[in-house]
Structure formats: structure tokens, C-alpha cells
Nucleic acid binder design. Structure first.
Lengths: 239, 239
DNA sequence: GCGATTTGGTGACAAAGTGTGTCAGAGCCG
DNA sequence: CGGCTCTGACACACTTTGTCACCAAATCGC
């Protein structure tokens, strides 16, 4: 009857659940309620939930530890509700991985605004995260498996890469067809800045070329831009 | 409510953010602010940003390294703000890829003027880049692959090009049948202006001819316009 | 912990890329 | 044809890059 975002309210006070539930339903949200952690898990097993309103004080398992355990295996946005207007709680809640924190008592308008804000933020994150870090890259005759930290040749044989070579290749593969200065590479691969006469990138590139290029003397994959840095030329397909 | 360009202010001082923010909003810009690099990235994940005002001194990740890492995967124009009126900073900032540099304290009129200038420049660039650059050009018996930075003969053999030769050929191929002065070529290929007695283009052309022409003594592709510069004569097909 | 191995940075030297100067020759104009 | 300017080619200087050997630091295996 209603296909807005699905909000799950977890609170042990029935009046509170009903009150909030009605307010949210009026705003077009789909609403479910649970009185404790157990009921919550049950509900979540059955239906996809877009956001959880979680009371800090609950019988049995309290809100904070529930929040933590939710975060352990999902990114569902969580808004903590609490009676205590304590700043400390807010910090703890956010540290536990909550996305926002609303002190009681709260007006329904405020709550709705916060919910929408968190949902918006999260959608944006999901969008960018969706096209986010592939696990494997293919280029030329290579398959670069980021999770396994392997570089596989077309014959399926893995070429061992040192940590530095791996980081450098990852930086390159993530920015193909773009000239990267030594500074940028150092920053992307080593997370540090360059000394004045830093030749370490040169050596590292040289080492990587030896493993990746057919003919390291005439690089076809990692090309040099004189006075500019290096450029990773192949098309890269992501998985 | 406002659909001017979207400016993102990154500064750790709240007053500075508010001040600049108000000034820009009054000029019709859409403004967002961030206190540090982390907040900046978060904001950028959510919304399209047209220009970034970046304070040099920031807590945590400083402006310069932020600038560098931004440049690694985007062309969003960046204007650096800095308290130190040091020329050195300016140079460093521009080297890191900033588009302009405004020393504090600055008047809001000046800042707005700089912003407009950078945006204008960038729009012009985006327009030409928007009708997006072909990846490959064919002329005579050659195929010029821009992404792979290769020049392939009809037999499929790659002729290695140095960075300078590549840039020059690219400039020529993008402006065929058009006389280009040495100045223009220097600007297009090297992004710098000419000294009074600059013969470097002559040498570069000579070197390129040796690789591209059948008979470098009688150039058929890159012809000399006496007193005018050079002209790339073949028909070019783009892909 | 401790020695062996791996890895990454530095210095040195060779090689490549680029700019400048020179000189001869070509193009232009009278 | 003669004087002028402009261009092509080459040699050379200088800068940037490639690579090797070596050492220090980190890591590994016990």
C-alpha cells in the first residue's frame, strides 16, 4: 500500500512505537516495529529494512551493543534515540557506527528531517560505493586480483609482487590513461610526500616493469612522460 | 533555490568558511563547506562540485597533499588559499595542480573575480573536451593511438615516440590543414611561451619528421610555411 | 629474541630526451 | 644576382630517466 523507504523502529515503549510509527507512515514511510533486539532480528530476516531507529535503552540487549553487532554485518543506516540529552551518548553512539543521534523528546518534523538526511547520505554513498573498488582488474594479458594480491598471467601463472610493487600497480591501474607525477604516485602508493631528490619511484617502476612488461627496455604498459611522471596506458576492465 | 556553480570551501576556521560562504552565496553561487579533507571527500561523494577553494593549512591531511590526491582522479578546478604571502607556496601550489592561488587576506570581490576566471577557463576546456577527444587518428599510412601513446605503421609496427614528439604530433593532428606558428605549437604541445630566439620547435619538428616522413629531406606530411610556422597537410580521420 | 631472507631506498653511472648554438643552405625581395 | 631572413641539420650541453650494486630496514622462520 506504500512503497516509501522501510523504517524499523526498535523501542520497548509501546506508546513511543505507535506515536512514531503513525508520524512516519503519514510521511509515506513503510514502518515496522520491534520491542527488543530479538524481535528486531526476526523482522530483519524477513524484510529488507532501509533504516533503523534504535532506542538506546532496551530491555535485555541494549541499543549500543545492538548497534555494534548490526554494524558487524550490514551497512543499514541507524539513528539512535535516547532520553538522555548527554553529549557523551552522542559520541559513543556515533562511534558505535550510528549515522545520527536524536535526543528525546523530539518533534516528528525533526525526526523525519533527520531520517531523510541519513537516507540521502546513504543513497549517495551506495551509489559511489556501488561502482566502488573492483576486486579484479584486467589489462593486456594480465589479471590483477586485489583481494588475493596476485598478478595472474594469461597462462594462469601468478607473478609474485612485493608490497611496494602491488601498491604501485594498484595506484596505476586505478588511474589508467592519466599521467601521474612521481609525487602523486608516492602519495597514492606510499602515502607519503617526496624528498627533493627522490628516485625511489623510478626504481620501483623499473622493478615493476621487469615483471609486467614483455620487453622492459621498451615499455608498452607503463610509459614514461618525460618531465611529467608515468602513465598506465592499457584499457582496464574492472570486475 | 539557487543554481549557480557549486563551490566547495575547505577551511578549518569556521568564521572563514561562513564569511566566504556568505559572500559567494550573495553572488549566486551554490556553496558547501568542509572543515577537513575527510568532510570534503564525503561531500564530494554526494554532490557534483564545480570548484574547490582549498586552504593550504588544514588539520590532518594538509591542503597540498589533498590537492595532489584530488588531481589524481579529477579535473575539478582548485583555488588554493593561504595565509602566507609566500611566492614559494604559490609555485608549489600550482605545481601540485591548483588552477589559481589567492593569498590571505583577500577581498571578496577579488576572490569572486578569480573564481569566475577559473570557471570560465575550465568551461572552455570542458567544452572542447566534451565533444570528446578521439582516441585514435589515422593519416597517410599511420595510426596514432593517443591512449596507448603509440604511432603504428601500416605494417602494425609501433614507432616509439618520445614525450615531446608525442605532444607535438598530437597538437598537429588536432589541427590539420592549418598553419601553426612556433608560438602556437609551443603553447599547444609544451604549454609554455616562447623565448625570443627559440629554436626548440624546429629541432622537435625535425626529429618528428625523421620518424614520420618517408623522405625527411622532402617532407610531405609536416610542411614548412616560410615565415609562418608549420602545417600538417594529410587528411585525418578520427575514431 | 636471533639470524636469514626479502624488500625498499640511495648513490653512481649510463642512456635517453630536450634545448641552444652554429653554420650552411634555401626562400624572398629588390 | 646580392643581401637579407628564415629554416634544417648537426653537435653539444644539460636535464631527466633507467638500471645496477649496495646497504639498511623490515619481515620471516625458528
Amino acid at each position: 500500500m506504500n512503497d516509501g523507504p522501510h523504517i524499523l523502529i526498535v523501542d520497548d515503549h509501546r506508546e513511543m512505537r505507535d506515536l512514531v510509527s503513525r508520524a512516519l507512515a503519514k510521511e509515506g514511510f513503510r514502518v515496522s516495529t520491534a520491542g527488543d533486539g530479538k524481535a528486531m532480528r526476526k523482522l530483519m530476516a524477513d524484510a529488507r529494512v532501509d533504516l533503523i531507529l534504535l532506542d538506546l535503552m532496551l530491555p535485555g540487549e541494549d541499543g549500543l551493543s545492538l548497534c555494534r553487532s548490526l554494524r558487524a554485518d550490514s551497512d543499514i543506516p541507524i539513528i539512535m534515540l535516547t532520553a538522555k540529552g548527554d553529549e557523551v551518548d552522542r559520541v559513543i553512539g556515533l562511534e558505535m557506527g550510528a549515522d545520527d543521534y536524536v535526543p528525546k523528546p523530539f518533534g516528528s518534523r525533526e525526526l523525519v528531517a533527520r531520517i531523510r538526511a541519513v537516507l540521502r547520505r546513504n543513497r549517495a554513498r551506495a551509489r559511489t560505493a556501488g561502482q566502488d573498488k573492483p576486486k579484479r582488474y584486467r589489462f593486456e594479458r594480465w589479471t590483477f586480483d586485489v583481494d588475493k594480491r596476485e598478478l595472474l598471467g594469461s597462462d594462469g601463472v601468478a607473478v609474485p609482487l612485493s608490497t611496494g610493487e602491488f601498491d604501485l600497480l594498484l595506484a596505476l591501474v586505478e588511474h589508467p590513461q592519466r599521467t601521474l607525477s612521481r609525487d602523486q604516485l608516492l602519495d597514492l602508493a606510499r602515502h607519503r610526500a617526496a624528498n627533493t631528490f627522490d628516485r625511489s619511484m623510478d626504481t620501483q617502476v623499473s622493478r615493476l616493469r621487469k615483471k609486467v612488461e614483455r620487453d622492459p627496455a621498451e615499455p608498452a604498459i607503463i610509459k614514461t612522460v618525460w618531465g611529467g611522471g608515468y602513465i598506465f596506458t592499457p584499457d582496464v576492465s574492472r570486475e
